[in-house]
Design a protein around this nucleic acid. Sequence first.
RNA 1: GCCGAAGUGGUGGAAUUGGUAGACACGCUGGACUCAAAAUCCAGUGCUAGCAAUAGUGUGCGGGUUCGAGUCCCGCCUUCGGUACCA
Length: 946
Amino acid sequence: MLYHPENIEPKWRAEWIKNQLYRVHNDTTLPKYYVLDMFPYPSGAGLHVGHPLGYIASDIFARYKRLKGFNVLHPMGYDAFGLPAEQYAIQTGVHPAVSTDKNIKRYRNQLDNLGFSFDWSREVKTSDPSYYKWTQWIFLQLFDHYYDNSVQKAKPVSVLTEHFNQYGNQGLNVATSIDYIFTASEWYAFTDSRKDEILMNYRLAYRKVGYVNWCEALGTVLANDEVKDGVSERGGHPVEKKAMMQWALRITAYAERLLNDLDTLEWTDALKAMQRNWIGRSEGATLFFDIDGFEKKLEIFTTRPDTIFGVTFMVLAPEHEFVKLITTPEQKNAVSKYLDYVKSRSDIDRMSESKEVTGVFSGAFVRHPFTNVKIPVWIGEYVLNDYGTGAIMAVPGDDERDYAFANQFDLDIIDILDRSEFPDAAPHAKVGKMIHSDFLTGMEVNAAIQLMFEKIKTKKIGDKKVNYKLRDANFSRQRYWGEPFPIAFDKQGIAHPLEYDKLPLELPELENFQPASGGKSPLARVDTWTHQYDGLELETDTMPGFAGSSWYFLRYMDADNDMAFASDDALKYWKDVDLYVGGTEHAVGHLMYSRFWHKFLFDLGFVPTTEPFRKLINQGMITAYGYYVENLRFKNGDTLIGNAKDLSGVAEYQAGSPIRLPYIHNYIDIRGRIIRSKFIEYYETIGKDFYVNGDISRYYWINDENGDAYFTVNIIQEKMSKSKYNVQNPDDIVERYGADCFRMYEMFLGPIEQSKPWDTKGIDGVNRFLRKYWGLYFDEDGWALSPENPTAEEFKVLHTTIKKVTDDIEKFSFNTCVSAFMMCINELKRLNCNKRAILENVNILLAPFAPFITEELHSLMGNEGSVHTAAYPIFDDQYMTTDTIEYPVCINGKKRILISLDAALSQKDIQELVPNLDTVQNLIAGKQVQRIIVVPGKMVNFVIKE
RNA sequence: GCCGAAGUGGUGGAAUUGGUAGACACGCUGGACUCAAAAUCCAGUGCUAGCAAUAGUGUGCGGGUUCGAGUCCCGCCUUCGGUACCA
């Protein structure tokens, strides 16, 4: 009887649905375990073979935990709001809800194919009003709370206004962007709109001026990845930074806790390091410089106040609020020209192209707080407005970027640090002796920093300060396909939250998805919607993608609740995610915001834990091979360059980019060459669809040593995407080999956290393994499981496998699990083992990996119930004993021979015994042995002098 | 630029704390079975030299520590992810 997955898999898929095998219940006495995948954005291209990599791993782990007796929550859903659906709607008029639902259906079919143990009754979809009702509700909580630094906790805004009523804003230690003091009587006297404005400086969800990528020609705001080299990706129109009133979330209030609590998490050090660096805590000082001719002072932040005597100029970010104020009439032209240039540059451009230093003199001067020397104020793009105060004191004597700037514009450089005693020190290391630094001269750096903190304080020119690189990210999108803000403005522009019973505030129906005038969201055109409440106008921005994804893991705990985002009981039982699996591309964005929201909900008493994701595994990407030919030339000298699909429109070609040749891999030889005859074959069968010009006589060919004309194809690894024609659909593989084979093959490809290219070359190995495994249960006459007692050797194979597989699952090393299964089956086959006592246990071990074949065999064995509710085999040491150990005998660390020794021998025994063995004598004959190193159970090494 | 990761045969990869480099597969070569093919089975397979025994060499590059380095340290190179509006 042969293994036929196509008969087995649909049968059990239906059976499991019928029995609701994967339905999870909240009321149980079993210990909980929560295994979560980062939910997918349902894109139009469907699921490709890269998506399931993490899902398979988490599914294996979830099934493993179930076998171990846990009540496992393992849900799935969709991150359903997003830009691509809206873009598609603009182009085709298809409503994003319609295209998204269609994509979701496709995803669901594809996921179902793979035998996952998701509890689909808990599915969430962020674009569903019953879900985003609670996203809006959490937003309103953020809007209605501020952060009290003294107790490190969010508190209701009503507490704050009560304080204002009594004391004004004095005596507060809270997170705020306000920099002035008012009294209680002033507070009373403020107009309502002034009060609203002031409160915005305290709310955790607030409005402020933010910068967006504005494209005048398209009349719309663009996402960063829609902008390439300062122009729009579509159409190549100029894009500039534009200031707009935007919602933001005060994540910076939680910076310290987000940083400290990383220590409590079981994440990789790499991931924690990325989050730490993103938060970017640094201790330093703020310093105020008097500006000549102005009352206002220029505030800067520095971590190196000791270098103050090396300051020779100041640099403002181009967006700094003082730029307009202090620029002198003579410099006005030059400055505004420079600002125009900077508007076209992204933050990455601004920081990465360090070779070319740009800047402009403002014409203004500040005074050195200690020497009163006049210091010029420059404007430079390398200073970012969002970091620190958006202004720096430049110390070209100690800072590389300042040095480059000074060189470029011929500014003074003062050496303030003698590091001759530390020739190997890194450029930014805080070591050395101060020179040319007045009262600091002769001091060590760290001592000088400490002294400066005091001096700054006593001179009242600044204070010690902790600064974070983390900033309050923009929470507004001028888009349709996102959560509407449950906020309405009155005639004075005061923001009013909607009452909870008005939630969800649903998106209106829409046919035209083009942006409204001024780059506003299409919602601005729907008057009936924006004015549905008397005298109020609804906010027309919507929330960004990370809104819905910042709390979805909580919704799964109690997905149908319409009284709360989840019930207290559900939250108390499930608590947090025990294992979270997803890509490193989310290492900071999504994970940081989820942690922030979770902590906020903790402060309000809604969730019982301070962190959402206890353990986190990053899965690597599955990439595809890309085949390119660089500069395929025509005989007349023209060079054909560009994406193969674009070749019909010659005008589109962009010089320098290589031509893609999709699906050409079967036509190229081992050296990456394609010869003329093969190319013709390729062109006739596949290439025609992508590649327009088949007149190969016009190409410039090189002749190889046999006289065959060829050109060379470059093979690279790249992301799978629809536009690259390299998407591999898992359905095709499942149809051909079955889901069990697909699952095991994806795991067999390599370590889960590494990215690797997709290639079906090795899948036959896994397929053979499954057939061999199946074959153990049958002989020529059919079912042939033996009730006999296993031999010691058979038991040893079983228990070796139990140990290896269990250890490796715990380490998330699934590729080595598959190898271990292969070795186990190879051994059992060699031993002709068909004993039930062995195979039944192997079958349970294998069940998390290959749920279908194991279920079929479990049932054929006559078992009641599912293999997926069986008990996990227990490892027993007694079967593992060995009599002898193979020792490699090495000379100077290099293996020469193997000897077999009694396992009971001690280190001393071996030390004495080995040199006297004949085989060893041959090895060391005539050589001078200096030392013999014996590592028990491992090896013997002779140290020999040549 | 900055932060993080990876680099091992023709290919995917394995290698507990520094202790036999290349497990397990794919591919390839040879053989068995077959009219033939598929499937299956057996043997070989890092590279170089050699009929062989064997010797040399070998984990991106250059140094170092050690009896012993894929693993630890220093300095580079390349590729990938993120860089705050892709998700």
